[in-house]
Design a binder for these strands. Structure first.
Lengths: 256, 256
DNA sequence: CAGTGGTCTAGACCACGTG
DNA sequence: ACGTGGTCTAGACCACTGC
């Protein structure tokens, strides 16, 4: 019973429904499952309990649990697999691996990609970085830069800031040893799951330094993508400023 | 009875479920409602029949209709309003009016906007325009250009192509007389509802002509946004190439 | 074969909007 | 008071997976 912190439904809702604290049962269940994810009760890639188990645990019907899970699956936090169960989404999977990489080649898609880490150091958060990561100015952050190349032509220059408290042990050597997508590493090595991101996109002219790293002319147009990525509970855990060469690649987007 | 073209469910599904034509009942209902929208059985802004009416018409339970409507509402084709009914989405509404305009000012949001039409003429589709609009090269298209200004500074230069067959009577004079968002006009005046769009985004250098119209220096970085917009049934009905000045505005995007 | 999620139904009660 | 969509429940049968 101590597992359940739901609004008491034994009393018919009546006026209680008008109170600010009211939310539908399935939303409360959704919140409880989210807490479980956040606590790490089920790790990325693992199955969560079956709908019937969760229904028993939370003392609601299977249908209510189902609606909660439906929404979490729609948000890409969970993945349903018929006949097998419901699994915690992970970046270690072909299907959703490049969910956050929107750059697409003009022609056929496959491209050999490689990453070169330029630097990685601990620093104190400037006022603006702190604001975007919900830190205080001067708090410890990790700052790194890298160049991503496709088919050996440098295409993306990324500058990344992370809260120091969450990524202890993230060093240049560690990064250089690591293979594969950064978000998969954050998840596996530091237990931080990126779940959602907001981007601000502009066209800018390449500075001298950027031009040299990307092997283009100074002043060439670059797509600037400033991203704040969030984990469970909408807590910001990464700030990334990317500069993309969009000669043979474009940023794809769908509007609904 | 002639209203219903569902797969026969009197026969238990059995192996039929393995056939290519199989889809869940609620998906079939969704398709039927979509056809109604496409036919114009219910106009944008109008209410569709209540869930119980549709359930009776299609000979399924209210729950099945509900699931179909849920998906259409998630796609922004329908809008549910508690106590009132379910309505056909429209661009003539404050809430969703600027659904497709992703440009946002760096500071406070409101900005007086004005549109200047540069030209509007009938033409024959070039091969590439035809391909993107699902036409044949040489088919009639309408081609127009305009400049959008915010707070009196020119910010967006749009070039738009439309299938001539759908937009008869769209002339320069007509455009200049019209007030308000283009998609609302397409919907109200030509019965074409934009439902979804795909964009390809790049950074480019402004040409002389673009620079003059946008009052910036030639070669300045511009955000190029190439959009194909679709109506019901994923039929492309607009091609638009926009160039945005992103000095004081940015293109916002959310990744899930 | 058993267990999982997927689909479908039926019915209850609620909150909201309108008359 | 009535009709709408919103929430919740209960139970049936299906399809997929793995033992």
């Amino acid at each position: 019973m101590s597992d359940s912190h739901l609004i008491d439904r034994q009393q018919p809702l009546g006026r209680a429904a008008h109170s600010a604290a009211f939310s539908p049962l399935y939303q409360q269940i959704k919140g409880l499952i989210l807490q479980g994810l956040d606590r790490g009760e089920w790790k990325p890639g693992e199955a969560i309990p079956s709908e019937l188990e969760l229904a028993a645990r939370f003392q609601v019907s299977q249908g209510t649990v189902r609606k909660a899970i439906d929404e979490l699956a729609a948000d890409n936090l969970l993945i349903r697999r018929q006949g097998k169960g419901t699994f915690v989404a992970t970046h270690n999977e072909a299907k959703v691996r490049y969910r956050f990489l929107r750059l697409t080649p003009d022609d056929g898609q496959p491209a050999a990609s490689s990453s070169q880490i330029l630097d990685c150091r601990r620093a104190k958060a400037s006022a603006d970085v702190a604001a975007m990561l919900d830190l205080r100015a001067g708090d410890a952050v990790i700052s790194m830069r890298r160049v991503l190349s496709f088919n050996d032509s440098p295409t993306i220059l990324d500058e990344i800031w992370l809260p120091g408290s969450l990524f202890k042990g993230l060093t240049l050597e560690f990064l250089q040893r690591y293979r594969g997508p950064v978000y998969a590493m954050f998840e596996t090595e530091f237990g931080v799951s990126m779940v959602r991101a907001e981007e601000k996109i502009r066209a800018v002219a390449a500075t001298e330094a950027q031009a040299e790293l990307l092997r283009i002319g100074a002043g060439s147009p670059l797509l600037q993508v400033e991203r704040v990525a969030y984990t469970y509970g909408d807590r910001p855990v990464e700030l990334r400023r990317g500069h993309y060469v969009t000669e043979r690649y474009y940023y794809r987007n769908s509007l609904n």
